[in-house]
């Protein structure tokens, strides 16, 4: 163990690592922005659609949940551009992949949340003359969404961890920046350890936040997990 640690490379390039972290958060944020509404649509199709809507929605959800994200990412980055005859840059491919990938998981969270609402709520809304859409919008979803918040945040954290894959198609997220610095400086131990520590700090902070929120919501009423 005579290894001499030398973090000067890390300090010298810390701005690059921070830039990578910002890009990681950017992909995560955009994927959440598109993934959550898409997940709601998929969940509603699966729950209330007719067969022509229910089956495709179910298949899309199961397919996206049962294939590795890296296979999806490679498909959208290497295969789709040939199929469509357009160019897709790493950033767009990443956002596209992770929006779709997370939408499948969010759809299941929505489904769990909606199904957890007591049937009496539907009946009561019907009794005062609300249509199904109005019931869903005004009665069911507001209650369901509150219960789903912890599950959503947990999925968001998982998503942030999964976005490290974008480094394989050379989008400059935190891991990609670490790869680049490590390769040019040969200080792999210091660089990768620092990158891991940076992820740890950000993700742990989010996890602790989720834990506290879960605790608070847990006291005020039951919650569902995705």
């Amino acid at each position: 163990m005579g290894y001499e640690w030398d973090f000067s490379v890390v300090f010298g390039n810390f701005d690059l690592l921070l830039l990578g972290l910002v890009n990681t958060l950017k992909v995560t944020g955009l994927a959440l922005f598109f993934g959550i509404p898409l997940g709601l649509v998929l969940a509603l199709m699966r729950l209330y659609g007719n067969k022509a809507l229910r089956w495709p929605a179910g298949f899309i959800i199961e397919f996206l949940r049962s294939t590795p994200p890296i296979a999806q990412l490679f498909w959208f980055f290497f295969a789709l551009p040939i199929l469509l005859g357009v160019e897709i840059d790493p950033f767009s491919a990443s956002v596209l992949t992770f929006s779709l990938q997370s939408s499948a998981f969010f759809a299941e969270v929505f489904r769990g949340g909606i199904q957890s609402i007591d049937n009496g709520q539907w009946e009561a809304a019907k009794a005062i003359g609300m249509t199904r859409n109005a019931t869903l919008q005004r009665i069911i979803l507001p209650q369901a969404v509150k219960r789903m918040i912890p599950a959503f945040l947990e999925r968001a954290i998982e998503l942030m961890k999964t976005t490290t894959l974008v480094s394989t198609i050379s989008y400059s997220d935190l891991l990609y920046q670490a790869n680049t610095i490590a390769q040019s400086s040969y200080r792999t131990l210091e660089v990768y350890t620092t990158a891991a520590a940076m992820y740890f700090v950000v993700i742990l902070a989010c996890s602790l936040l989720v834990g506290r929120l879960e605790h608070r919501l847990g006291r005020s009423g039951e919650i569902t997990r995705g």
Partner: peptide, 12 residues
């Protein structure tokens, strides 16, 4: 190990 991405763990 729960709060770092698994890809980072493998690379490390």
């Amino acid at each position: 190990f729960r709060n770092t991405p698994v890809l980072v763990q493998i690379m490390w």
